[in-house]
Design a protein around this nucleic acid. Sequence first.
DNA 1: AAAAAAATTTAGACTTGTCTAAATTTGTTA
DNA 2: TAACAAATTTAGACAAGTCTAAATTTTTTT
Lengths: 217, 217
Amino acid sequence: MQTLSTEDYLKAIYHVSQSSSGAVATTSIAKQIGAKPSSVTDMFKKLSDQNLVKYQKYQGVSLTNEGVKTALRIIRKHRLWESFLVSHLNFNWDEVHQVAEQLEHIQSEKLTNELERFLDYPTHDPHGDPIPNRALFMKTYNKILLTELPVNKECVCVGVKDNSSDFLRYLDRRQIGIGTPLQVLHREDFDDSLHIQAGKSTLMITKKTAENIYVKS
Amino acid sequence: MQTLSTEDYLKAIYHVSQSSSGAVATTSIAKQIGAKPSSVTDMFKKLSDQNLVKYQKYQGVSLTNEGVKTALRIIRKHRLWESFLVSHLNFNWDEVHQVAEQLEHIQSEKLTNELERFLDYPTHDPHGDPIPNRALFMKTYNKILLTELPVNKECVCVGVKDNSSDFLRYLDRRQIGIGTPLQVLHREDFDDSLHIQAGKSTLMITKKTAENIYVKS
DNA sequence: AAAAAAATTTAGACTTGTCTAAATTTGTTA
DNA sequence: TAACAAATTTAGACAAGTCTAAATTTTTTT
Ligand SMILES: [Mn+2]
Ligand SMILES: [Mn+2]
Ligand SMILES: [Mn+2]
Ligand SMILES: [Mn+2]
């Protein structure tokens, strides 16, 4: 049985390990969690004692099988709750993270599984991230960044890389969301900006925006 | 902003103060919380420093106005979540307490108020206890214990005093729940047992059972 | 390969919440 | 009312999680 804090660390280690190869460094977790590196070292030792991570001094950590499972159980709850907040409690997709960060720690298998049933077994959360099912298996599809999409190819927005409120509200204003049909009309060589068709309107977005939008064709 | 622990103490103090007059004693809270009296003394001091209780050494505590408000906010969340678990997530009324004990600490006014809206502004939880509204006002009706009901008077079960799983499941087996019409057919002088009409069936219950059932006529 | 920089760990401290054991106060009984 | 019992508080300890400052190791740069 984990504490709130160890759960957040395991989740952070999982996320960092997904977006980079090799062992997870102390400072990367310190940044993610918002703690000092010395605190992270302490926690690495505790997690190592519980066999949730493999830890070698000065060499970072990697999750054990049990560590991965524990992380995925938290992520499953986080994403189910996010889905619930958006689908039934009138939350916007930029408001859910802070609350889900708390709800993900509620301990009750029955609660999690009944919530999943109530939501009709969603496969993705409001940000397009896959929700692990009861067996902790995630359905992932081939998504690419909008920057990698060939000109004129039709596609659909299926996710975002940056989950910040700022970015999500910016997309709201541009009327881009999960499911919005997108098409690159023209790529400007000078500054890599894109002219795109988004739903029924055409607009211009910067490279920085495009590399935070996942699409599927 | 309170911690999980201080919130549980405030709630416990509120409940004990409701069911007895005068200041709340250290041991009564120790029993309720499941902690040692010395721990309770420590917490009384902390709560006193925050002006949530009035505390005099050896004389127990009483909640300040701010303390009452904080307690009611937790109770509001606890009962709303209990209602949600029963009405939408297939929980039985004897299973909700342990989970609500966790959910009551989630901090998000929007979440609480949207949950209340989603549930269509319920006034009572699955155990018949009143749910404080947004202004922390509770609608209470005149309820009496089944032991106090005159013979042959028709009434309806509106609540339970004992919230233990054992008692609630016992009531399930007897097909007595919130809303069940009840009537005392005969009071046995010898052992104070009652012959009652419960819905369509007649059955016998002990005094102990009767004094844990609230009814309204 | 040595020096400098960056990353990481250790040492020691603090907070919150808890405990046991001992001391103190209050209440009750003879 | 003096002795005893019960309730309460104090003193001192511990675990979890965090921090700062100093020491150590690794990595990068000259
Ligand atoms: Mn969290
Ligand atoms: Mn998400
Ligand atoms: Mn609680
Ligand atoms: Mn209840």
